[in-house]
Design a protein around this nucleic acid. Structure first.
Ligand SMILES: [Mn+2]
Ligand SMILES: [Mn+2]
Ligand SMILES: [Mn+2]
Ligand SMILES: [Mn+2]
Lengths: 220, 220
DNA sequence: AAAATATTTTAGACTTGTCTAAAATTAATA
DNA sequence: TATTAATTTTAGACAAGTCTAAAATATTTT
């Protein structure tokens, strides 16, 4: 039995772990959950007792396979609910996160399976993040940061790294949502900004600040 | 701000209040929530401080207008989620209650409104219970206990009073679900049992035990 | 390598919700 | 009406999760 507090910690630890081999530091978890380091230390001990994380005092934690499985099942539920809120209840992509944060803790494997089926087995959530499958496998599809792109060409936006409503609203206003196809027409060597153009000929500037948070894939 | 524990207490008190003018006793609440009387007394004080109930020591509580409004909004969410689980996720009517018990605490007026619209503004839940509207108004429609019926005739099942999965499964096996139309063909004066017949000519016996838990309405 | 700084952990306290056992009050019975 | 019985409340304790302030440890600087 995991409480929703434990689930939130595991999710945070999982997210802080991905793409980085090192231990996750107490302060990082505290920052991510807006809580005190003292509280984090307490919870870490509890999760360590349950073999959800490996804990070394003063050195941080590493999530275990067991902890990771729990985290992935929460993330799966979170993202499925986000799809539901957007596709069925017509919320906008910048509005779904907070509600999903609550819904993800309603735990029933059977309900999750049925929700998945009802939504048509979606593979990505409204922000372009992959939805882990029943076994906790995450299917990513070679997406890369727009800021890492070095050659001009046609790309498709598949996701974002900054999930804040303000950023999402900004993108939407610019016409950038998951699935948007555009071509890079100009890349500035000096400030790493770029100019892109949509199929409808509308063209916009993208600063490094922005492109660092955009996940794209080559589009044929 | 109400916690989900407070919400569960208010809901229990509301349900124990309806159809009975008297105060709700501590022991009744304890029984309904499977908790100790000591815990109930503690929570009652808290709810009383928040003006959700009027409390008289040793005499029980009466729910206030304010408490009732909260209770009704939880009941509204509960029943809407039950409709969702049944209509959209294809759960059976005896499976939806426990999940709704959790989902009802995810509180967003906006989400509730959209869920309502998405479900087509249903007026009743899968058990035939009326769904309170946005203002907390409950529209009942002259339904009466089958056990109180004194004259033969054609009736429609609109709801049940016993929501236990075993009872619901029993009814379903007999072919009795909300909306079922049947005629009373025989009423036993002695044990108050009755024989009913469906439009498909199938006929079954209904004991007093059962009819006490069935809500029906005259069918033309 | 010692001193200064930053991070992490412990200590102690608080809140919410729960429990059992004892005390207080109300209701029933003889 | 005086006991007895049942119900309700209080007292005291506990678990989960949180906090601040102080102590312990690690890291950086001089
Ligand atoms: Mn959450
Ligand atoms: Mn998302
Ligand atoms: Mn509930
Ligand atoms: Mn119901």
């Amino acid at each position: 039995m995991t409480t929703s507090t434990e689930e939130n910690y595991l999710k945070a630890i999982y997210h802080l772990s991905t793409g980085n081999q090192n231990s996750v530091l107490t302060s990082a978890i505290a920052g991510s959950l807006s809580t005190s380091s003292a509280s984090v230390t307490d919870m870490i001990k509890k999760l360590s007792d349950k073999n959800m994380v490996e804990y070394e005092r003063y050195r941080g934690v590493k999530i275990t396979r067991k902890g990771e499985k729990v985290a992935l099942s929460i993330i799966r539920r979170h993202r499925l609910w986000e799809v539901f809120l957007m596709d069925k209840l017509k919320f906008k992509w910048d509005e779904v996160h907070d509600l999903a944060e609550e819904l993800e803790h309603v735990s029933s494997d059977e309900m999750t399976r049925r929700l998945d089926a009802y939504l048509g087995f979606p593979k990505f959530d409204p922000h372009g993040d992959p939805i882990p499958d029943t076994n906790g496998k995450v299917h990513t599809n070679g997406q890369v940061l727009l800021s890492d792109i070095i050659k001009k060409g046609k790309y498709i936006l598949c996701g974002v790294n900054d999930h804040s409503p303000s950023f999402l609203q900004y993108l939407e206003k610019k016409g950038l949502v998951p699935g948007s196809v555009f071509s890079i027409v100009e890349m500035d060597e000096y400030d790493n900004s770029m100019q892109i153009i949509f199929s409808n000929k509308k063209s916009i500037f993208i600063s490094k600040e922005i492109s660092k948070n955009l996940l794209v894939r080559n589009h044929e």
